[in-house]
Nucleic acid binder design. Structure first.
Lengths: 211, 211
DNA sequence: TTCCGTATAGTCGGTTCCGACTATCAGGGA
DNA sequence: TCCCTGATAGTCGGAACCGACTATACGGAA
């Protein structure tokens, strides 16, 4: 699988909007925010304009007019080309079919959970659990007053359900791990440094609590 | 919360290794790979050397010797400073406590699931489900012959359990969504473009199947 | 009437990131 | 003996990314 010419998913969002109607970049950003898509796409003005230019370079979109309102900066309105419409669908298809490695910050931190020691680790995870629970509530509220009230078809917010599911899973893992730390079922070796590298104490019951 | 001076988590991995003993960058990369940490950290030679330099600039690590073996390129060995040891722990603590927005490619694609139409969407998700199941199996095998055989304490591979849990959740959501598409409980509006923007057909039973 | 905050629209320079490339050495097969 | 592959160690130029900044317009408060 050769690498995609454009990999920033913000370009996917742009392409998506231009399937509906021509727009200028600033309008894309505000439309995405209005639709709560700013939690699926990282919208950054700088990146947005770079992305749009890259899409033009590849012939996926093209400028259709430049207008000026009074003395404000000029706006360039873009539309998707036929190529852009085709690639939009192909790209979605590809992203859905093939899982790719991502490197979430949380995984990085969990890799070194041991460095905090059991008490501080459990406390830190507990704080995270609180934040996660809050976020889940907020998101449920958003879903309730968009899809729940029939304003927006469920399919158009399906990614929100997806991310919600992911957070719930993370929360469950976090809580389970806190419990395992507190009740000692996640054995905490006292790693020690020797000239030969590292050694660690074995759990008292042989290799019992390593699952 | 002010932005971290260094945000690339590869720097966290470097710091982690240098808690054990001084190393040169190439050795860091191979050690991380040996320990299967390359699924939590994106290891890229270019980024690695940049990261090491950034850590030196901030005084978190420092070169302790430069050796040369025959006519091979010179190796510079680095060690963590006191500051680096403190920041290592603080950084982990921070990453654990506060969830940050990430923008996984899958979410981007799911946002535009509608664009594929129900049949192709279900098929694409089904392919993904297959890949995910495979990955989960592989990862379980890795866990079995490291932690499972008592070679490595469970705590040192805890992030693998975490990512496994996340994948299982994603798989579950994916399968559920495939079912909902196939049995029609995820209503698929026929979006149509008008001059006023977009309209969509309502589900036949009023607003029934929007959850 | 002036001032302030916010919305509109986009620019720009610096950092970060990436992966293709260089170059040497060691070991095994033909 | 020669060649090929893979490991060792790191360099470099360009692409991507970011966020602070500019500049205008507008509505309401003081």
């Amino acid at each position: 699988m050769a690498k995609r010419k454009i990999s920033n998913t913000l370009a996917l969002a742009v392409l998506g909007l231009l399937q509906e109607r021509p727009m200028h970049p600033y309008e894309m950003a505000s439309t995405l925010r209005e639709r709560h898509k700013d939690s699926s796409f990282k919208i950054n003005s700088g990146s947005l304009y770079d992305t749009v230019e890259a899409l033009v370079r590849h012939g996926w979109i093209e400028p259709v007019e430049t207008a000026r309102d009074g003395r404000r900066p000029e706006r360039t309105v873009y539309a998707a080309t036929q190529l852009g419409q085709d690639e939009f669908v192909r790209w979605i298809d590809e992203l859905l079919r093939m899982p790719v490695a991502e490197y979430p910050k949380f995984m990085a931190a969990v890799s070194y959970l041991g460095a905090l020691g059991p008490d501080r680790a459990a406390e830190a995870l507990a704080e995270r659990a609180g934040h996660l629970a809050e976020r889940i509530d907020e998101t449920n509220r958003v879903l309730a007053d968009t899809v729940g009230s029939g304003q927006v078809p469920r399919l158009f917010m399906i990614e929100v359900e997806c991310v919600l599911h992911a957070w719930e899973a993370e929360l469950a893992w976090t809580r389970r791990t806190i419990d395992e730390i507190r009740d000692g079922s996640l054995f905490w070796p006292e790693a020690e440094r020797t000239e030969q590298g590292w050694t660690w104490s074995a759990p008292s019951d042989g290799r019992g609590s390593n699952r």
